[in-house]
């Protein structure tokens, strides 16, 4: 019995793919289709190098296509309008027009839109974090009748396109008298923040995260006489910090990119957010009245750069959050 077991696990011996000299008279040479093993190995190596090179060329070509719009945006933002409209396109500005960036502030009220966006993003993110943490805690940790039913309803709502809600939400917000004639800045902010104070998707995301926190921690906290409330804030929230950071950044990015809703619920262009300002501003030269693509592109650079900075600093959180949540905003 033990003999069989031994042979079964005994290490097998492989012959290396080389000419094996058995003794002076016999040389075993492993060949395939008339080629020596060395030749086959060499051919394999060459084909591997070729494949790798082709893969890199393919990837780099596509990267160039992906990056090109950004390059063109920056280049165009530094060109004179005559050069942009010229029949011969240049891949680098002949005269670098930094002044485009100065002029753009005359036609595009960047500061105001930036401020509006930050205020709306701050409050809707704060609200979302609080409501999401509470709901995820209830779904992940507390037990009560109807929990699964409510959670199922929540999951189902994720399948419904948001456009279905926009019409009625518009009516609801109008009935709160937040929009319409004589709208104040506060009312505009309320109309832009309140409907976005929670997100079913982030509740789902955070609940999954909370569920991974072991029961033992909860029991230990109970033994120490901690309440659910202090357990939530002292233990669960710090442990789920990476997910919360992801939610914060994605929510902020969502506000930065939101266009439809702010456009619908604000009366004055002064109350709108950065995307609305960008599309709503007429980038004409103050003197000549012509559309200045240089100004326009300078403005798009101003809108894009904050997002890139955010991405550089929080790449890990953004990519992980997007990978799990799979939605913007």
């Amino acid at each position: 019995m033990s003999e069989i077991a031994k042979t079964a696990v005994a290490p097998k011996k492989y012959i290396d793919f080389k000419d094996v000299v058995v003794n002076d008279n016999i040389v075993i040479s492993l060949e395939e289709a008339g080629q020596t093993t060395d030749a086959i190995k060499k051919a394999e190596k060459v084909s591997k190098i070729i494949t790798t090179t082709l893969t890199y060329i393919f990837i780099l070509a596509l990267v160039a296509l992906v990056i090109f719009p950004f390059y063109w945006m920056i280049i165009t933002s530094l060109k004179q309008n005559t050069e942009i409209q010229a029949s011969t396109q240049t891949f680098f500005p002949t005269i670098v027009m930094w002044s485009n960036y100065v002029h753009v502030f005359q036609v595009f009220d960047f500061g105001r839109y930036m401020w509006n966006t930050i205020v709306v993003a701050f409050f809707s993110t704060l609200g979302t974090l609080i409501t999401t943490i509470f709901a995820a805690f209830a779904f992940a940790r507390l037990k009560f009748k109807g929990r699964e039913g409510v959670f199922m309803i929540f999951l189902t709502t994720m399948m419904i396109p948001g456009e279905m809600m926009v019409i009625s939400n518009f009516i609801t917000v109008a009935s709160f008298r937040w929009i319409g004639e004589g709208q104040t800045l506060l009312q505009a902010y309320l109309a832009m923040v309140v409907p976005f104070l929670t997100s079913v998707f982030y509740i789902y995301l955070l609940r999954q995260n909370f569920k991974q926190i072991p029961n033992e921690l909860y029991l230990a906290a109970k033994v120490d006489g901690k309440s659910d409330w202090s357990f939530l804030w002292r233990v669960m929230v710090p442990l789920a910090a990476p997910t919360l950071i992801s939610i914060t950044i994605l929510k902020f990015m969502g506000t930065w990119n939101s266009y439809v809703w702010p456009n619908l619920v604000t009366n004055s262009p002064d109350y709108r957010l950065i995307s609305n300002g960008l599309r709503g501003s007429a980038f004409v030269d103050v003197d000549s009245g012509q559309t200045e693509y240089g100004y326009q592109m300078a403005a798009t650079v101003l809108v894009t750069v904050p997002l890139f900075l955010l991405f550089i600093f929080f790449r890990k959180y953004i990519m992980r959050g997007v990978g799990r949540a799979g939605i913007k905003g």
Binding site: L62, V63, V66, I67, P69, F70, W72, M73, T76, I84, M253, W256, N257, Y259, I274, S275, L278, R279, Y293, Q296, M297, A299, T300, V303, T304, L307, F308, L310, F311, I318, M319, V322
Partner: peptide, 18 residues
């Protein structure tokens, strides 16, 4: 390759129109 995700859809749309 991920860069297009972190952009403003309106802004890049304007770049494409240029």
């Amino acid at each position: 390759f991920f860069l297009p995700y972190v952009t403003n859809a309106i802004a890049v749309g304007m770049v494409f129109s240029v």
